[in-house]
């Protein structure tokens, strides 16, 4: 049981961004992707989740054997894929409680209604764990949120939707150290043999809190090196150029 990406090629317009990428991350593991700016990390996250601006010109992505590229973004989500956005969008006038509720409702068979009492009970429990104020439920989705609040909100949504696979795109960006801890603990609580994580980050700092099983280095639209968590530390110390030199050598 895994997400398997093979020989993936993606363009934006005529510009190749991902150039034959191979990656597998199974349930039960946390894989991290590190890489310099412009390496194609965020593009990869968006392609996995089904953003229509990116043109897949070759390769395959499957989730537990199912072809993801054949599915719309919303179908992928309902099949168990979650993405925590680097820049979560605002939805003016729609409260957080209503938004998450609509997302859960979308997973039920037609005609079945979400149990409101059970829903709020669960929502409040997850919010408490993330140290979120109750007032949060009545605020519009991400509107006027600080960077930290937005990221907590992403983790809250993930906790409520309980995906099989989660892609976290630069979840650490814009977080102070306290918020980073809360968010990381939120992710760690969800680690389970039934769930796979792909953590995309620019900095090693996040991986002190979310300790990965495997670290991949991405550069120029490809995975150029994979290893265990010590690879992240080495990168931190020696910079990305070191991997490049190593690979070239």
């Amino acid at each position: 049981m895994s997400i398997e990406i093979s020989d993936l090629k993606v363009n934006i317009g005529d510009q190749p961004i991902i150039k034959g990428l191979n990656l597998t991350f199974p349930k039960g593991e946390v894989h991290a992707i590190m890489g310099p700016n412009g390496s194609g990390k965020s593009t990869l996250a968006k392609v996995i989740s089904g953003h229509e601006d990116y043109e897949v010109i070759g390769g395959k992505i499957t989730m537990d054997g199912v072809d993801l590229l054949e599915m719309e973004a919303d179908e992928r989500s309902r099949e168990g894929l979650f993405m925590a956005f680097q820049y979560p969008h605002e939805i003016p006038g729609v409260t957080n409680a209503n938004f998450i509720r609509a997302a859960l409702q979308a997973r039920l068979p037609k005609g079945e209604e979400l149990d409101a009492v059970a829903y709020y009970k669960q929502l409040y429990a997850e919010m408490d764990k993330l140290e979120m104020d109750r007032k949060f439920t009545g605020r519009a989705v991400n509107e006027g949120f600080s960077g930290g609040e937005k990221k907590r909100n992403e983790i809250l949504q993930m906790a409520m939707l309980k995906p099989s696979y989660a892609v976290l795109d630069e979840t650490d960006s814009g977080l102070d150290i306290d918020a980073l801890k809360v968010v990381s603990e939120g992710v760690n609580r969800m680690r389970s043999p039934e769930r796979g994580f792909l953590v995309i980050t620019h900095y090693q700092r996040l991986l002190d809190y979310i300790v990965p099983d495997v670290v991949h280095v991405m550069k120029g639209g490809k995975i150029i090196r994979s290893g265990d968590k010590s690879l992240a530390l080495e990168l931190e110390e020696r910079g990305y150029d070191w991997v490049l030199d190593e690979t070239a050598a």
Binding site: R78, M83, F85
Partner: peptide, 13 residues
């Protein structure tokens, strides 16, 4: 479109 994509990623059509 990005707002719609955000919501679709959460499972809404």
């Amino acid at each position: 479109e990005d707002q719609i994509f955000y919501m679709k990623q959460r499972g809404l059509s």
